[in-house]
């Protein structure tokens, strides 16, 4: 073992260290694909707002039934309240992956997450 270690020069160690660090860092960096980076809010199919998923913001959109409240936090977004009868879009909770969408159909409002790498075209529950 010692005779092998002797063959590694100081710069080699440095390179291995830097390379190892870069490789270790590349795993989470490349594999968290699918996480969204923008929340797109639409009313009647028209984009009302595009909010970066880095910010913390609350937004009210007025539809035919009343106000739909949307909250954006770093990395996720949700419909907080909606005048619709069944509350599907509210119960969907936090959305964080690119392609996820919450549709408040009665109030004509939707909240979609978009991202650079989308793992899915569309996700709804």
């Amino acid at each position: 073992m010692r005779s092998w270690l002797r063959l590694v020069r100081p710069g080699d160690w440095l390179l291995l260290l830097v390379g190892g660090g870069a490789v270790a860092a590349s795993f989470p960096l490349l594999w968290q694909g699918g996480l969204g980076d923008k929340a797109v809010i639409r009313r009647d199919g028209q984009i009302v707002a595009e909010i970066d998923l880095q910010t913390r913001r609350s937004l009210t959109v007025d539809g035919p039934l009343g106000a739909t409240v949307i909250a954006v936090e770093p990395g996720r977004a949700r419909v907080v309240s909606d005048p619709g009868l069944r509350q599907y879009c509210v119960h969907q909770g936090w959305l964080s992956r690119a392609g996820e969408i919450a549709i408040c159909a009665p109030n004509h409002v939707s909240l979609a997450i978009t991202g650079r790498n989308r793992a899915y075209d569309s996700l709804a529950y």
């Binding site: 100081p10 080699d12 291995l16 390379g19």
Partner: peptide
């Protein structure tokens, strides 16, 4: 690269990458 610091191990790793 300066041979004192960088040897075949560096070459090999760089080439492989």
């Amino acid at each position: 690269l300066p041979a004192r610091a960088f040897g075949p191990v560096s070459w090999s790793v760089l080439a492989a990458l």
